[in-house]
Design a binder for these strands. Structure first.
Lengths: 125, 125
DNA sequence: TTTCATGTAACATCAATAGTTATGATTCGC
DNA sequence: GCGAATCATAACTATTGATGTTACATGAAA
């Protein structure tokens, strides 16, 4: 599939698609071919690639909307609050990454198939 | 304490302080006095106010850095991905809010006291 | 009545993300 | 080989949300 077509599906720009797909290529999940009839291909086994791997491949972007203003503040109040929040966020992050690790692209494909069939049935009724 | 003094401590602007403190006042956690010798007072019992309550009082701002582009997309792929992520995020959010509910301002005050004593000892040595 | 505060609206700034344009490099079909 | 299709990438622009600022009104105390 070309970046142009993907961009249309995603409602965005082909360059934006290439930016993200480039990371997935570095991780060996997809490959790209230049020139005529080129575009993107999935190279990995869907049952092996987890959401966790995609997250890692995309540079482990921040999961939480908030974070410490300073990692090592002089202010003792700030240190105290940071410590309390760090602990809670670390637990939540660990759980989130664990769940991401349990969901593979094959799982999503299977769920998609169910949804697809359900929609088709609905149309026939 | 005045908004001006708080702003200096926080390295920000007094109006920004008032914006946030206004929410805490609505929740009954602090009170403000105008005029001479006015400013902000804590009105709640420190052992009763949890981080969860602060979070709620401040309007339950988003905890996660990512979210669904559309809540109810037509696209079946998007629906599939949303469902998978929603589940994981819901679990992580529940855990996070639970932890926030377990931490009170009194807990933070106690931890601060320890850190304060530790710093003092370090200076004496 | 002057001074010190908060309350609040309106505006400005900043940073991060997303989007765009432009150009170069590669591949395939003819 | 030539030209069209496609990715690669740098540079620039636009958008958005959070934050910061200014200005002015209101209220309370000395």
């Amino acid at each position: 599939m070309t970046s142009d077509d993907l961009a249309k599906c995603l409602g965005t720009n082909p360059v934006v698609v290439r930016r993200s797909m480039g990371f997935l290529r570095q991780a060996g999940i997809v490959a790209s071919d230049r020139g005529h009839a080129g575009g993107w291909r999935i190279t990995a086994d869907l049952s092996v690639v987890s959401l966790r791997q995609l997250h890692d491949a995309l540079g482990e972007p921040a999961l939480f909307a908030v974070g410490n203003r300073n990692e090592l503040p002089d202010c003792l109040v700030e240190q105290t609050v940071n410590a309390a929040l760090d602990q809670s966020f670390a637990e939540a992050e660990a759980l989130l990454l664990k769940r991401f690790g349990e969901i593979t692209l094959a799982d999503l494909a299977a769920d998609f198939t169910l949804r697809h069939a359900a929609r088709r049935n609905q149309k026939e009724t």
